[in-house]
Design a binder for these strands. Structure first.
Length: 116
DNA sequence: CGAGTGACCCTCA
DNA sequence: TTGAGGGCCACTC
């Protein structure tokens, strides 16, 4: 069931702690679907109760536009997340689930290696 | 079943 | 630094 894909991505997002963030691509990869960043968007759509503000685009960019984007930034700053310019300082706040074996490399669907 | 639509991402010019 | 191009895939007409 393709449905479990979104469910798994949701559970990953739900596990992101306060003060930490995860990117769309990472959320999908951690859930077991490297390269499926767009599905993370779907996983957030219409779902309440998820820490949606802790999901940012690659490089710490806020993907939401306008008012929504400003609210997301406010929520993050309230949790202690710091910014540099208009992006989150990923080196300080990126969340990684359980540190996997060092040196591990995941590959996306096109066979491209994705450093992890 | 085909086409269009995303709060995306990576590579390369 | 920026933009194009191709890739991903659930979901809705």
């Amino acid at each position: 069931m393709a449905r479990s894909m979104l469910l798994r991505i949701r559970s990953v997002i739900a596990a992101v702690p306060r003060g930490k963030v995860i990117t769309y691509g990472q959320a999908a990869a951690v859930a077991g679907f490297p390269g499926a960043a767009r599905q993370t968007v779907w996983a957030l759509q219409g779902e309440h109760g998820l820490p949606w503000h802790r999901v940012v685009a690659a490089g710490g960019r806020i993907a939401l536009a306008g008012e929504e984007g400003r609210e997301q930034r406010l929520r993050l700053e309230m949790e202690g997340v710091t910014f540099r310019g208009d992006r989150v300082r990923m080196e300080l706040h990126t969340w990684t689930p359980k540190p996997r074996q060092a040196g591990r490399v995941l590959r996306d669907r096109t066979g491209r290696p994705r450093p992890w």
